[in-house]
Design a protein around this nucleic acid. Structure first.
Lengths: 225, 225
DNA sequence: CGTGGATCGTAAGTGACCCGGAAGGTGACG
DNA sequence: CGTCACCTTCCGGGTCACTTACGATCCACG
C-alpha cells in the first residue's frame, strides 16, 4: 500500500488525480494549501508527495524547501510550466522529479513506483517499538506493559500512535490535535492534557514524572524511547 | 565531486554531454556499450548513470534491469522516444528518471543534483548542527551542551532555530523579530537583547565573549559554527 | 581629549499563561 | 440500567514572556 499526498488548490484536478490513484490501489491524502501540506507531510504518513505549484498565497519553491527540511519524503512536482528555469529552481529547492502537464497517468504512476521502490530499498520499517516501560505494536494496534496487554481507547491510541511514529521528534500541539481530532479542534489544548495524563497513568512507571511521554511546555509533546 | 557514467553509442552525443558535465565540475566516465556499462557501474565508482537506450545489440530495458541488479546507483534515461509506454517500461525496469531529447542541459544537471542530494541525504536524515560548544538537533527541537540536554523556552528555541537555519549568514533584527514574534513587534529590539543573552548564558562557554551567537551592531545577528 | 547619544548586555520583577490533576456531565451502546 | 469513552470545567502551582532599570561600550563630534 502506497500513501500519496496530493497538494493542489484546484478541486477538480484533485478529484481526477485522487480517483486515478485510488483506482490503482493507492491511498490518497489531500492538502489544498501549503500549511496543511506541511502538517500532513511531517506526520510521516505519505510515502510520496505530488505537488501542483499553482497555489495562491504560497511560493512553491519555498514550500518545497520547507517540506524537504522536515521530512525526507520524495516530492514530485506536477506543473503546467515547461520552462527549464522553472524546473531547475524546483529541483534545486529539493523536488525529486518534475512532470509537465498534460501528463500521462501511466507515466506518473511509473514514476511513483520508481520512488517507492527506492524508498523501500532503503529501509524496512519496524512496526514494533520497545520502550523501557512498555511496548507498542503499531501493526497490531496493541500496547503491552510488563508483558500484559493494556487496553487503550481509540483516542488514546491515536495520540500514542502519532507520537510513536515520530519517535524522538517533537510533535506540535497543533499537529497532534489536527491528526487526532481533525482541523476543527486545533485549539482544544485541554484534550491533549487529558489524554496525555491518561496515557501516562496507563503506561508510565511514575505518571507524575513521565519517562517516555514528555511535554515540552509551549511547544508540543515528544515520545522518548 | 560527482562522478557520472555516460552510456551512449553515439560518439558525438557522448562528447557534447561529456564536455558539458566536465564544464560543471563533474567527473565523467564513458561506456559505449551495455557490457562496458555494467562493468563500470558495478565497480561502484559512478554516483549516477546517464543512459541513452539507442544502442545496437542491446535491449535497453534489459540493460537497466541488469544495472539495477548489481548496484543501487540511480539511472537517468535520456531518449528520443517520448511515448509514455516506453517511459513506463524503462521506469519499471528500474530506471529512476526519464528525460526526452532534445533536453535542456540545465534541467538535466538539476535532475542530477536532485539524485546526488537524495543519495547524500540518506546518511544524514535529521538536520543536526554541531557547533564547538553545543549541538542543535533541528528535527527533535533539542539542544545539547557537553552531552547533556539544555532546556530552552519556546521563544529561546524559535530565535535559535532561525539563526541556525541561516548558519553563517547575517539575520537582520527586523527579520528575526518578524519570524519569532510576528510582524507587529518588529520594533522591539530589546526582546532580541534579552533572548540572545539568555541563549548565550545557556549555550556559550563564555557568555560575555560569545563564540557562536554573534551580534553585528546595528545590523542583526549571526550564528557561527 | 572630553562629552553626549545610541546601541548593547545584564539583572530583576510581575502578571499572564500553561500544565497537571481531579471530577462531573453527556451520550452511545449493550 | 450500567458501563465506557469523550468532552468540559475548575483549581493550584509553576514557568515564561514581557517590562523596566541600569551599567558598559562604541562612535561622532566639538
Amino acid at each position: 500500500m502506497v500513501t500519496v499526498l496530493v497538494v493542489d488548490h484546484e478541486p477538480q484536478a484533485v478529484h481526477e488525480l485522487r480517483d486515478a490513484l485510488i483506482g490503482c490501489g493507492h491511498d490518497v491524502l489531500v492538502a489544498e494549501d501549503g500549511e496543511t501540506a506541511l502538517d500532513i507531510a511531517s506526520s510521516g504518513k505519505p510515502d510520496v508527495v505530488v505537488l501542483d505549484p499553482a497555489m495562491p498565497d504560497t511560493d512553491p519553491v519555498e514550500l518545497i524547501a520547507d517540506l524537504r527540511e522536515r521530512t525526507p519524503v520524495p516530492v514530485i512536482v506536477l506543473s503546467e510550466r515547461p520552462e527549464p528555469t522553472y524546473k531547475v529552481s524546483a529541483l534545486d529547492a529539493g523536488a525529486d522529479d518534475y512532470v509537465t502537464k498534460p501528463f500521462d497517468l501511466e507515466e506518473l504512476l511509473a514514476r511513483l513506483r520508481a520512488f517507492v521502490r527506492r524508498a523501500n530499498a532503503e529501509v524496512a520499517r519496524d512496526p514494533v517499538v520497545i520502550a523501557e516501560a512498555f511496548t507498542v505494536d503499531l501493526g497490531a494496534k496493541r500496547v503491552y506493559r510488563k508483558g500484559v496487554e493494556v487496553h487503550l481507547t481509540p483516542n488514546e491510541w491515536a495520540v500514542l500512535e502519532v507520537l510513536v511514529r515520530n519517535s524522538g521528534r517533537l510533535v506540535s500541539h497543533h499537529r497532534l490535535l489536527r491528526e487526532v481530532w481533525g482541523p476543527d479542534r486545533v485549539g482544544e489544548l485541554q484534550y491533549l492534557r487529558v489524554y496525555l495524563a491518561q496515557l501516562r497513568r496507563k503506561l508510565e512507571d511514575d505518571p507524575s514524572r513521565p519517562r517516555h511521554l514528555i511535554t515540552e511546555p509551549g511547544l508540543g509533546h515528544r515520545f522518548e524511547l
